[in-house]
């Protein structure tokens, strides 16, 4: 066992890990941050997506040891300071961009990374950016719509509901 220290959602944390401990295992089991989910074992579904030093990373495809000293942000750390939903989270609720909720944390974190790089993405750019986030419930229609709305674009012309 070795020790790892990182900042998670703005708080310094230290924990014991094995060499093989994945970042997602450290978050879920070590820190009880269970909002980050595991939906596959081939690095494709994106349910585990978090930000490491500001960039989107699949927490199932990074060792906890690699995050030594890093700033890690998970879904638990993105709401407004008063606990209310942030713009992206709120848009997902407003436009019904989630159903079972399992892929949702990864989707929200992915959308945040997209909008940081591209504040006003087109529908096609959003769809391509979500290559690594699989949703089985929504058919993506309302996810794409929510992300467009979160970026301040008018979505009233997109097929209703």
């Amino acid at each position: 066992m070795a020790s790892v220290t990182m900042n998670v959602n703005g708080k310094p944390v230290t924990g014991e890990i094995e060499g093989r401990t994945l970042l997602v295992e450290f978050l879920r089991n070590g820190l009880s941050l269970t909002g980050t989910h595991v939906g596959c074992d081939t690095s494709q579904c994106g349910a585990c997506l978090v930000h490491v030093d500001g960039e989107a990373v699949k927490a199932c495809t990074m060792f906890a040891a690699e995050a030594e000293g890093a700033e890690v942000t998970t879904i638990e750390g993105v709401s407004n300071p008063d606990g209310s939903l942030n713009t992206i989270q709120q848009a997902f609720q407003d436009y019904h961009g989630l159903q079972c909720g399992f892929c949702t944390p990864g989707m929200v974190m992915s959308a945040a990374a997209l909008l940081k790089d591209n504040p006003s993405p087109s529908e096609q750019e959003i769809r391509e950016y979500l290559q690594g986030n699989i949703c089985r419930c929504t058919g993506y229609h309302n996810i794409v719509k929510a992300i467009m709305a979160a970026s301040g674009q008018d979505v009233s012309r997109i097929a209703a509901e």
Partner: peptide, 16 residues
């Protein structure tokens, strides 16, 4: 949807 709030904040309670 009221359930969305917990799913959007990582506060869902799934079996795992």
């Amino acid at each position: 949807r009221r359930e969305d709030v917990r799913f959007l904040t990582g506060d869902g309670n799934y079996t795992d």
